[in-house]
Write a protein that binds this DNA or RNA. Structure first.
Lengths: 192, 192
DNA sequence: TGTATTACTTAACCTATGTGAATGTTTTTG
DNA sequence: CAAAAACATTCACATAGGTTAAGTAATACA
């Protein structure tokens, strides 16, 4: 089962099988049921998780009480409130399961251990954060330069699995629009 | 002059004066004149820069030929196309001076040296990327949850120096709106 | 299995921002 | 210093997406 993570790590950095195994042994399995929280806003994010199966989503609630989804994580994604996990500050985000999810979780203490004792691990992690950053940048680009319809079509192309497995109103929130608007957009697209 | 960077590093990580000095000695000064490029889309970002004085802005041009500003960097900010700098891939962004800027630049090779030889430097850098990531996340939140007027007011409060020193149409682009719209928003605010 | 809940669609109307064009202002540069 | 270029403002009109409210379909769970 942890095979997935083994693969993922080896695809990002050069690492011996022993070191990769050493890292895996620091993780623990955890199941999060549908609608259960993995991380709650205000708590400290004690763990970072690698998704083995199922779906989680990350969102925040703004001052007006509106919920905004910032990430939808399927299999082989890492998920946490990174800022909180790394700094110990209270989390800004909630992370909750859309579908029951199986995770490999890594605690802060074990994360630090891995950084110090496993060659290449800090590097793996830096690259992970870096990728997340680049992804966030791209997302900003798309919000600005494209209409909701364009963003919808792009998501449809780049992540068809998300579209199939995630209820539409989550997708609307991820796209930054209301469910009614997504409905309207889909209707217009059918006409074309 | 490099004093600023010295301070900045010490404010982020525990590092001896010697190590900080060692790091500083790897950087070189460079001046970028008004409207000159520091990084050009398509080139590899060979350097990362710490801004000593002046202003730079980072933007990309989308398929429709529209320019979108993603960052405005004043004194004490780091600037580059991180993804390109770290991976060697062609840059997605342009970085150009709005006001003549004095920089401390660090080459990829020297960056690698610093990571290997200076204790705590990889950590400093991971934290830097992490901060950039958190900032990008926050930006996404704000684009979604707030109107252009709200975003304008927030920028006015959080970065008054930018507002004073940067022409309005750059700010409009950073806010994701057209100059005419920013003009209208400002007019409406005066009425209130 | 049936009822309660949650998700999705549609439609009429509203609002913020975009568009294009005209005009004035400020800055740059020969 | 003058002409050109870049920047800012205003306005009338267009449009994407929000809002409210209603109806229908799908799902959950007692």
């Amino acid at each position: 089962m942890a095979e997935n993570l083994f693969q993922e790590i080896k695809s990002v950095i050069d690492i011996t099988d022993e070191d990769a195994q050493k890292f895996l042994s620091l993780t623990k399995e955890k199941t999060v049921k549908r609608n259960e929280f993995f991380i709650r806003e205000g708590d400290t994010a004690k763990y970072i998780a690698f998704v083995l199966s199922g779906i989680l989503y990350t969102y925040y609630v703004n001052e007006k009480g509106e919920k905004h989804i910032v990430q939808i994580a399927l299999e082989t994604h890492w998920v946490s409130d990174l800022a909180s996990f790394l700094s110990g500050a209270p989390a800004d985000f909630n992370v909750q399961a859309i579908e029951e999810a199986k995770l490999l979780i890594l605690s802060k203490a074990d994360f630090e251990k891995a950084c110090q004792n496993i060659k290449g691990f800090e590097r793996y992690f830096r690259i992970l954060v870096q990728k997340a950053y680049v992804h966030a940048q791209k997302r900003i680009s798309k919000i600005y330069g494209n209409s909701a319809e364009e963003r919808y079509l792009e998501l449809l192309e780049s992540a068809p699995d998300i579209m199939q497995r995630v209820p539409q109103h989550y997708i609307a929130s991820y796209l930054g629009i209301k469910p009614q608007s997504l409905s309207r957009i889909r209707k217009n697209l059918i006409k074309k």
